[in-house]
Amino acid sequence: MITLHSDQLVFRFPDIDADVGIGINFQRTLRIPDDGSDHHLPPGLGRFPLRHIEDFDLGGSNNRKTRGGIIMPMFQSDALWLNFHDLGRGRAELPVALKIGAGKINAVSGEKWAAGLSQTPQNYVVLPGQPWLDGFNVEKGKVRQFVAMPLGQGYTVEEQIDPQSDVGGIQIEAFPMKKAVFEKLKAKREVAPAMHFNAMMPESASAPMDMGLGMGGSMRQEIYDDEYGLKAWDLENGLRCFIMLANAEQWMAVTGEEPPLSPISVQDYNEAGLPWFDYYDGDRKAIEGAKALGNIKSVKAVAQDKREPIWPDEELEPNGMVEKIIPIKVPDGSW
């Protein structure tokens, strides 16, 4: 089952274990410069609000409600990253294979959304090993930032791969580890203290309602190989959720709530002396980048082609303050 708790999607799998699950929230963040450099990871500036989509009258977009799921406000050019959590200390950590789509283009493999899981190429991330995802997997060890753009203007990744597509939003599908495999894993881990999965990173009115995700600047982030193998995942008990990205300028009219403020600029962030981040897990192997995403144009490149000055100057460089984050681990044996 999927529930909403404090602007977080909570996936639970009671058929596997009544006490375990994962949380996913969507962090507002700085839009990093698209300047040819590979930047460090930007901070989390708080969660985007999430609401049940069926609670609201979406006017001309009411047909989108047939997808179910949730609605989340973003301004054009807002950037986000996905933050993955377990459900709290003291609970066993259920490994989960997670597929993430942007307009039904798989953000990890670059392929069109398809049922199930694949390892050739890998089309999912594995939790808890993967603490977050900031963008599209364009190269080994490199992603391009998720940036919200209106549909119908050619900026989104899905429209570049399939010009007829207007799905938009974010799609998530989670497959838990099979019960028998998980029981073995739990038994082994009960001997050692639980591995900590601390993914907290220091944490126009007439515009179309629907948004999709385009590619922003490049940053260093690895997407890790599946250490368990395809047979470990329970494809019969997957859960999925469609997240509609609503233009934040219409959020107030639709929900009666104030939309979140646009994030501060890179300049303001640097002037406050705040850090950027680097995550390193030397025990895990990164997968290759998605070939299908290698030729996709960034939002900035599309805007230049169209001669549309949609973004302000990006001459500012992130400052040199980088905090390295290293996962806390316990030894892992055979099981």
């Binding site: 529930t3 909403l4 009671p14 997808r67 999925r240």
Partner: peptide, 18 residues
Amino acid sequence: QPDHAILYIVRQVSDGNW
């Protein structure tokens, strides 16, 4: 009631056609 029974009466995020 056990946790999972209580969770079944919590409002769930819907899934439709997509």
